[in-house]
Write a protein that binds this DNA or RNA. Structure first.
Lengths: 222, 222, 222, 222
DNA sequence: ACATAATCGAGACGGTACGTCCCGTCTTGTG
DNA sequence: CACAAGACGGGACGTACCGTCTCGATTATGT
């Protein structure tokens, strides 16, 4: 089943779809999720608030879940800072920190609510939101290998998971990230340090990791 | 809101509640969650499958969410496997592997369906299933520190997350674990090796990690 | 397909249907047909006015058409004057006149609107409304034959049609009954006289028909 | 409300209307009324079957009702059969028989579907189909009176109804005509005989009716 | 023994929302 | 302009469940 509105609408005959209408629907959806939550949200209410017929919504998305995923993804997609100009460590921390913070925003919490709705939804969410970020992280790690900063024998896919997994798991279910105050960047730094320590090339060990050492230790004794 | 059926039903006059009925309801609930998911599950269907009147369900639980939490809690009451007697690496791999396999059982699939549904559901799941396992892993790591096997300056909570997170995230959402065939133990081994490499005390590095190195590499080139 | 609510509800298990509810629905239906017509009538509006859920209506009737037929039939069924105590001519005139007037009442106009909706509806209407009246007329004619008042060689079915047909056709489509003021009983009398003149036994001719001769002639020159 | 397409479409500038299009629409309309009835007919379906845009229909007729009236009127434009050259009885039987048979054609079935739909529809049908036939019958009866064959004190309008009513009522709703097989001409003959017996001048009674007496009697005892 | 009282299955009830079908109007691009 | 295609706001359709409420039939306990 189609999961999202076609991004390029295949200009056929007939009146073309009004992009303003789509924007209004997405806007109304986001507002309503924020106000009453996913569970209580109804397509009927979305249509009413957007000043739109129900059929206009169902013409674009198969159902409520897909509409919401698309709406959330719309909000999410933005803020994709391109370049990575810092240290490897800095870039990883920045990317994960952004991911972590995303989990605490409205949009992130929405997604949290949606994952697990159905296999299709998970697939949709992965494709739209997760994979791009994984890919970006993967690219940065690849460069690390090329620069001789990381060991050449790493399974980078696993390394990415080892970075992304704890953060997203913390967002979805809650682990140390919650227990020790996921609001703080120190958690992410500790995570990156741990993984990098096992990932950097032996010759660089001393050089790259001597930073941000104390922050988390101090925090965790609060 | 009350979350579970009263454990001791205030023995008074009148016909007592039939425990077989409760069992049938829970069974039907679990089956239906597994088959069609929480979202599409209806109390009506549960009643029909259990051969029970709707009122009989509402007499015990305030609503669908509470029923489901109770049912899942019933299943996931931990059957804690015995202690750890192997290497640190062996023990970690074993624990994570069990966790990963759990995600493919019915109970595990149930959780997948429930993640993100509601704070109560997550809380229940964490308390019943996750925390015991985290605690066990944490204990094993602590022993590793005491044995001098692991660095003494580690934030063990973060280390636990770094091990549990990727596995559970793979189960719930799918990452490299899915891409490279999460069915294989090699994924878990690669993960443990990566983390341990960053976690073992410098003096033990050479000693502990020279194993299971090739398996994953070979697999991933299939 | 079932066409009407079951008259005797086959007392099974479960909560029995509330007869007050049915009455309210029928009442609301009749009111709304009267106010806005069959075409503009909606089950939704009926439910709202009756203070009833839509499902409660659909539990009893398959759809709008059947509901309306039942409601109209309810109104119609009443006013079935049993005995026939007058002359043959008087009884026939009375019966047809009642039929004609019925066509001008609300209920009658409603039926007019319904006939032609679908073959099923016509069948339903015939069974519920027309056939009983035809049967009554037929019975009266039969008595006329037994009394020696009518010719014994008549096809009474055809005679019934010859009496009912013009009246109902006038109601449905409009003929002389409309053109000459269907509001007046004289049309029916003229019709009965014409038919009887061809139906009475030769020996009774002079005796039975010498009445009500002039009324219609006078009217038609208005 | 305007009822038909403009007959002369105000020849101005721009592309003229395609007459083929109009024909296709009318054809599709008639087919669909015959197949699913007026109630279930939709402009959308008409457009689809005619291979035409909806706007093209609404450009010609204000709505569904008017389209249908126009389509039906198109079909029923009377192909008036020639005069009457036989006996009074023969002519009446022939005229009514033609009417009866008409009810079994597509055009006739269309009318069945339309009766009672709306005042406009009935008016259109009466004007287009019924009145010409009534007028013809009336004329023939008038000649019967002039010839001294029929009683001079008859209300001929009522006599026409008494002949037309049963036949049309049988076609529309079903009476004895259905019960005894309206497919047979004997029904019409019995009807005509009954009415004529009450309508012929006393002096001619013996002379005119001694025919076709037995046919129906035999049929009805099958 | 027998009334009392809570349970059970079944299912009707007033509602809310679903996703679909048309209505009649309006934009497109192509003759 | 007319035309096909089809999007649009709107309204009703008939269905599925919600959580509540009778029903009649059980099944214990407390007299």
């Amino acid at each position: 089943a189609r999961m999202t509105a076609e991004t390029v609408p295949v200009r056929g005959p007939g009146r073309p779809r009004d992009p303003h209408v789509e924007a209004a629907i997405v806007q109304a959806t986001l507002e309503l999720i924020d106000e009453i939550g996913y569970g209580r949200l109804s397509v009927e209410a979305v249509a009413a608030r957007a000043g739109v017929g129900k059929a206009t919504i169902y013409r674009r998305w198969p159902g409520k879940a897909e509409l919401v995923v698309h709406a959330v993804a719309t909000v999410t997609e933005t803020h994709t800072p391109e370049g990575s100009t810092g240290t490897l460590r800095e870039d990883l921390v920045a990317a994960l920190e952004q991911m972590r913070r995303h989990g605490t925003t409205m949009a992130g919490r929405l997604v949290t609510r949606l994952v697990g709705e159905s296999p299709e939804l998970i697939a949709c969410y992965r494709q739209q939101v997760i994979e791009p970020r994984r890919a970006r992280l993967l690219g940065r790690l690849q460069r690390g290998v090329e620069d001789g900063e990381l060991r050449p024998d790493l399974q980078l896919e696993v390394v990415v998971d080892t970075l992304v997994g704890p953060v997203m798991y913390g967002v979805l279910v809650g682990g140390a990230a919650r227990a020790f105050g996921s609001a703080h960047v120190a958690y992410v730094e500790e995570l990156v340090d741990l993984v990098l320590r096992g990932a950097v090339a032996p010759s660089r060990q001393e050089f790259d990791l001597r930073s941000a050492r104390t922050a988390y230790t101090e925090l965790s004794t609060h």
